[in-house]
Design a protein around this nucleic acid. Structure first.
Lengths: 125, 125
DNA sequence: TCGAACCCTCACATCGATGTGAGGGTCAAC
DNA sequence: GTTGACCCTCACATCGATGTGAGGGTTCGA
């Protein structure tokens, strides 16, 4: 598929798809005429990237961890340098901190929503 | 305490503490001489703000949800308008999406780290 | 063959979160 | 009463993610 379709299917402006490519997050083939050519796998890939960006990770980090998240990842074992593993562990820890923070605050919001709806019910009955 | 101490204890540049105040996330008292004056509760508050910012929430949203997260929150019931509750639910959903995305990717990283360390062990034995 | 709907590459603009520093007050200790 | 370590308020700079559009090629159907 070309960039327009990928853009629609991932709900992502073309501008950003080109930007992600420029940042090295995705690598599209080119048709003879120069158009970018994508296959199905890019749909998930782009959504994953967007999710991570939305969760606060910068493209620089996403670029580093993306290769480890591919499904048949056995192929990538050899290129695991010690520094890279350290980075990976460090980012995992940061993600855990983020997750904990989000869960704590989500639970507090939930609690608040529950309390308010309880109050409303009590008031309206 | 004054801004310098809060800055050290939260590991946050003074500049940002002033910025958070400007954005309406915290409201410091002022000493007669104009210095900002903080009490203990600001330490947690600032760390919570930083966590949420790091997790990808903009100050505008943080400002909206912070009041609901205070501990003796009973006081805040009356100001819960329907639009505000809708916003809150919407943000909770977004946070859930973020959490799921982070957990998925963290698990994949963990899996990769496990696999690599397993390989190394196998290779080194 | 013309126009619509794609695509391309720049390049400049915006926006939010930060960095940095100038210019200037407060206050305690020496 | 001067010095050093605080604090203040601007205000401009930077950085990453994104918006927008100019200028121009490709493809395809009317």
């Amino acid at each position: 598929m070309r960039i327009g379709e990928l853009s629609e299917r991932t709900n992502t402006p073309r501008r950003l798809l080109r930007y992600y490519e420029e940042q090295g997050l995705i690598a599209a083939d080119r048709s003879p005429n120069g158009y970018r050519e994508y296959d199905e796998r890019f749909v998930d890939r782009v959504m994953q990237i967007r999710g991570l960006l939305d969760a606060g990770l910068p493209t620089r980090i996403i670029k580093q961890i993306l290769p480890c998240l591919d499904k048949p990842r056995v192929i990538h074992f050899p290129d695991a340098t010690p520094e890279m593993l350290a980075t990976l562990r460090h980012e995992r820890d940061r993600m855990n901190a983020r997750i904990e923070c989000l869960i704590r605050n989500r639970d507090a919001m939930e609690e608040y929503l529950d309390a308010v709806s309880g109050t409303l019910r009590r008031h309206s009955v």
